[in-house]
Simulated scan of single mutants.
Amino acid sequence: MKTSRMLVKRSVRSLSAMALFIIVSLGTSIGASADDADAKRLLKAMSDYLVAQQAISFEYDATLEAITKDGQKLALASSGTLLLNRPDKIRATRSSGFADIEMTFDGKTLTLLGKNLNIYAQQDVPGTVDNLVDELRNHNRPLPAADLLLIDPYEVLMQDVVDVKDLGSGVIGGVECDYLAFRAKEVDWQIWIAQGERPYPCRYVITSKFMKGDPQYSIQIRDWKAGAEVAATDFSFKNPTDARKVNLKNVADELPEHFKIGEAQ
């Protein structure tokens, strides 16, 4: 046991030394060579590509960090799918250890299906996907990667940005990507964009600076499809399982009891 503890301590020291080396390197080399204009150009190219796609679909893995009262950082993991047909149709799923939600929107009606409880709720939300994103945020139910689905992602992402870095390239899920980092007033965010003719987002990470512990939300995208690659889909709600209709607030999509805000875990 003593030997194991010594190995752990040495590993922690090694990681700390590595982190210090990375911090020093960022401060001396990358910061000096960062090309703001090139980073903005790459982000704008991604935005233009996304907006030009009539249909988009992908699978994703997401992590939402929560900070306990005693400062421990915990990660809530989920996976799902998303299918978008511009300008006003979307279907998204999200599965985690405490919720299994499917959301459909046909340009007129939003439907949330709680598969684990076999219940559903509906609300009239006429308009585009941009309008739906705003409505869901008002109900504290944000879409995964919502900023990337809007009609002008570049304008939204660049709001209040005060610092831009082009950090070269990285590999996400076997895909070589351009790696960009941005700082805004309330958040830092990073994005990895696939290189080549299809500059789609491979990973998107947001760090909150106004919350203690700087929690992050990250989403990693896989199985990207666009245009003719996306299968035709019916976006109307069919209720194949005879789910019971309830009020919107009763469709569970919140933290479980042992993660309730304000409790030390």
Rank of each mutant, 00 (worst) to 15 (best):
L15E: 01
S16H: 05
S16D: 11
S16T: 14
A17D: 06
A17L: 14
A17H: 08
M18E: 07
M18P: 01
M18K: 02
M18Q: 04
A19F: 11
L20G: 06
L20A: 12
L20M: 09
L20D: 09
L20S: 12
L20W: 06
F21W: 06
F21M: 12
F21I: 12
F21L: 15
I23K: 07
I23R: 04
I23A: 14
V24E: 03
S25R: 00
L26W: 04
L26A: 05
L26K: 06
G27S: 13
G27N: 08
T28A: 08
T28N: 06
S29C: 10
S29I: 15
I30P: 01
I30V: 12
I30E: 02
S33R: 10
S33P: 00
S33C: 12
S33W: 02
A34Q: 10
D36Q: 15
D36T: 15
D36N: 15
D36P: 11
A37D: 15
A37V: 14
A37R: 14
A37S: 15
D38C: 08
D38P: 02
A39Q: 01
K40L: 15
K40T: 09
K40W: 07
L42V: 12
L42C: 00
L42H: 08
L42S: 09
L43I: 10
L43D: 09
L43H: 05
K44F: 04
K44V: 02
K44S: 10
A45H: 02
A45V: 02
M46P: 06
S47I: 03
D48V: 01
D48Q: 13
Y49P: 00
V51A: 13
V51P: 14
V51E: 12
A52V: 02
A52Y: 03
Q53M: 05
Q53G: 05
Q54P: 08
Q54E: 10
A55D: 08
A55S: 08
A55G: 04
I56P: 00
S57N: 06
S57D: 11
S57C: 04
S57I: 07
F58S: 03
F58V: 04
F58H: 05
E59A: 11
Y60S: 00
Y60L: 03
Y60V: 03
D61K: 13
D61P: 00
D61V: 10
A62K: 14
A62E: 14
A62Y: 09
T63K: 07
T63F: 06
T63G: 09
L64P: 00
L64Y: 12
L64K: 15
L64W: 07
L64G: 07
L64N: 13
L64Q: 15
E65C: 03
E65R: 04
A66D: 09
A66L: 13
I67G: 01
I67H: 00
T68K: 07
K69I: 07
K69N: 10
D70Q: 14
G71M: 07
G71E: 04
G71L: 01
Q72D: 11
Q72K: 15
K73N: 13
K73T: 13
K73Q: 08
L74Y: 12
A75R: 11
A75N: 10
A75E: 08
A77G: 07
S78I: 04
S79E: 09
S79H: 09
S79I: 10
G80Q: 08
G80T: 11
T81V: 04
T81D: 09
T81H: 11
L82G: 01
L83E: 08
L84Y: 05
N85M: 11
R86N: 05
